[in-house]
Simulated scan of single mutants.
Amino acid sequence: MEWGIGQIRDQVTVGLGFTVNNTFAPGADGTISGTYDYYYNQYINSAVIDYNKWNQVHREGSGTAETKVRREDINAQITVSFHYSPVSRLDIYTKFGVGVGVMNYLYGKTRNEKGFTAKTVDKTVGTGSHYIYSFNDLDHARWDKMKSKVVPAVSAYVGATYYLSDRWGVEAQVGLLSANIKDEDKGYPNSYSVFSVGASYKF
């Protein structure tokens, strides 16, 4: 969305506006690590010595799993543009923007987990000691997932709109349409949009 705020000579219009951009990557298979640290209850009963007790047993460890990892980013920018109309229905422009973005990693269901154990026991051992307990490490797993990051966002591109009527037009844009900027050393590579086609409506 943008508004014309001034003119330079007869054919150049200065525009001020904003954009909201959403980019999505289809994703790829990856491996994530997870840890667990919890207590579970264990019941012990002995008929020989008339003994019964509930104990809390500590379990701690780590493991890995396979999952599908996808990337989805969003940003909002304030834009300044310069429009040139060589003929009545054609609008050629260049646009610059700056704003703030959010980088997101989306994770699918885990599979092929390794390093995690689950067990349910209800049995008598030896001379009559009865053990009852159940635990599942995956129920307490904390996965090492990449968190959302707030980052700078920029854009700089050229485009053209051809109006089929007084209101509706078709357009194409090429350049740096949308970019979320982050240091790749921290595991969040930059994301770019470089080309688009679409429709335009003039109020």
Score class of each variant (00 low, 15 high):
residue 1 M to C: 13
residue 3 W to E: 14
residue 8 I to L: 09
residue 8 I to E: 08
residue 8 I to V: 10
residue 11 Q to N: 15
residue 11 Q to W: 11
residue 12 V to R: 04
residue 12 V to T: 06
residue 12 V to E: 02
residue 13 T to A: 04
residue 13 T to I: 03
residue 15 G to C: 02
residue 16 L to N: 03
residue 17 G to K: 04
residue 17 G to Y: 00
residue 21 N to R: 01
residue 23 T to Q: 06
residue 23 T to M: 12
residue 24 F to H: 10
residue 24 F to L: 12
residue 29 D to H: 09
residue 30 G to E: 05
residue 30 G to R: 00
residue 32 I to T: 10
residue 32 I to Q: 03
residue 33 S to T: 11
residue 33 S to F: 04
residue 34 G to W: 02
residue 35 T to I: 07
residue 39 Y to L: 12
residue 40 Y to F: 14
residue 40 Y to R: 02
residue 42 Q to R: 07
residue 42 Q to C: 04
residue 44 I to N: 00
residue 44 I to K: 00
residue 47 A to V: 15
residue 48 V to N: 12
residue 49 I to A: 03
residue 49 I to M: 02
residue 51 Y to L: 08
residue 54 W to N: 13
residue 55 N to Y: 15
residue 56 Q to I: 04
residue 60 E to R: 10
residue 61 G to H: 00
residue 61 G to P: 08
residue 62 S to I: 01
residue 62 S to T: 06
residue 65 A to Q: 02
residue 65 A to M: 06
residue 68 K to P: 00
residue 70 R to Y: 07
residue 71 R to P: 12
residue 73 D to T: 03
residue 74 I to G: 06
residue 76 A to H: 01
residue 78 I to C: 02
residue 79 T to L: 04
residue 80 V to E: 01
residue 80 V to N: 04
residue 81 S to A: 04
residue 81 S to V: 03
residue 83 H to V: 03
residue 84 Y to G: 06
residue 86 P to L: 08
residue 86 P to R: 05
residue 87 V to M: 14
residue 87 V to R: 09
residue 88 S to E: 13
residue 88 S to C: 11
residue 89 R to C: 11
residue 91 D to G: 03
residue 91 D to M: 07
residue 91 D to Q: 02
residue 92 I to R: 04
residue 93 Y to A: 03
residue 94 T to D: 09
residue 95 K to C: 09
residue 96 F to S: 07
residue 96 F to G: 09
residue 101 G to H: 02
residue 101 G to C: 05
residue 101 G to Y: 00
residue 102 V to I: 08
residue 103 M to K: 05
residue 104 N to C: 06
residue 104 N to G: 09
residue 106 L to Y: 06
residue 107 Y to P: 08
residue 107 Y to K: 07
residue 108 G to C: 03
residue 110 T to N: 11
residue 111 R to E: 11
residue 112 N to V: 04
residue 112 N to P: 07
residue 114 K to W: 13
residue 114 K to I: 14
residue 116 F to H: 08
residue 116 F to E: 03
residue 117 T to C: 11
residue 118 A to S: 15
residue 119 K to V: 15
residue 119 K to F: 15
residue 120 T to G: 14
residue 121 V to R: 04
residue 127 T to P: 15
residue 128 G to V: 03
residue 128 G to D: 07
residue 129 S to F: 07
residue 129 S to E: 05
residue 133 Y to A: 09
residue 135 F to M: 01
residue 137 D to A: 09
residue 139 D to C: 10
residue 140 H to G: 11
residue 146 M to P: 10
residue 146 M to G: 13
residue 149 K to S: 12
residue 151 V to W: 06
residue 152 P to H: 01
residue 153 A to Q: 00
residue 155 S to D: 13
residue 156 A to C: 14
residue 157 Y to E: 11
residue 157 Y to M: 13
residue 161 T to L: 01
residue 161 T to C: 07
residue 163 Y to C: 07
residue 165 S to Q: 01
residue 165 S to H: 05
residue 166 D to E: 12
residue 167 R to C: 14
residue 169 G to C: 02
residue 176 L to Y: 10
residue 176 L to I: 15
residue 178 S to G: 14
residue 179 A to S: 14
residue 179 A to P: 08
residue 181 I to L: 13
residue 182 K to T: 14
residue 182 K to Q: 15
residue 183 D to A: 11
residue 183 D to V: 12
residue 188 Y to R: 07
residue 191 S to D: 10
residue 192 Y to I: 11
residue 192 Y to R: 07
residue 192 Y to L: 14
residue 192 Y to S: 12
residue 193 S to W: 03
residue 194 V to I: 15
residue 195 F to I: 06
residue 197 V to L: 08
residue 198 G to M: 09
residue 198 G to Y: 08
residue 198 G to A: 09
residue 199 A to E: 09
